[in-house]
């Protein structure tokens, strides 16, 4: 009989799981991504009249198809946020930043984004933000490079 080994004797090796998934969008999510490429934000109108962003292909309550897409934003308000002191290499920003849920003007549900801000004290629920568009856009959520605060007078903070 052999004894169990110490962890140090166990063989280990890197395992990398990587794939460039190609996802078909369908017409509704496709329209959302088309909008990002064109620097336009769109949501879908739910059965109860709410505007959902990102648009849903289907009503989140009843499950029925949603087909009406409407333009929203581009500015909105933070509904909740979290401050990341040490960004992960995979995060959208390299410097400390805030995750935010942003309710765009004309929308009823908020969407997730990464907000560049000078520090945690600059961020608050209710603050106005707007997207900073990537220079090269291809119809991808990353076409919004990140979000930025808008000062109360309407210019950038």
């Amino acid at each position: 009989m052999t004894d169990r080994q110490d962890p140090g004797e166990i063989l280990s090796a890197p395992l990398i799981i990587e794939y460039p998934f190609k996802r078909t969008t369908g017409p509704v999510i496709g329209a959302f991504l088309t909008g990002l490429r064109e620097r336009v934000l769109v949501g879908s109108r739910a059965e109860d009249g709410r505007v959902l962003v990102p648009p849903a292909e289907f009503d989140p309550v009843s499950g029925e198809d949603l087909t009406e897409l409407v333009e929203v934003g581009p500015q909105g308000v933070i509904t909740t946020w979290a401050w990341v002191t040490q960004p992960h290499a995979k995060h959208p920003l390299d410097e400390p930043f805030a995750w935010v849920l942003v309710k765009l003007d004309g929308a009823d549900t908020p969407m997730l984004g990464a907000l560049a801000a000078p520090g945690i004290e600059a961020v608050s629920t209710g603050a106005r933000v707007e997207p900073v568009w990537a220079d090269e856009r291809e119809g991808h959520i990353d076409d919004i490079a990140h979000w930025t605060l808008v000062d109360p007078e309407g210019g950038r903070a």
Binding site: I29, A82, M111, G113
Partner: peptide, 21 residues
Amino acid sequence: PITVAPLWADSVSLAALQARA
């Protein structure tokens, strides 16, 4: 997988959004 996963919003960050709310 299309509108959120590419942002790599980790599970702790999402929980923090909920805590703030």
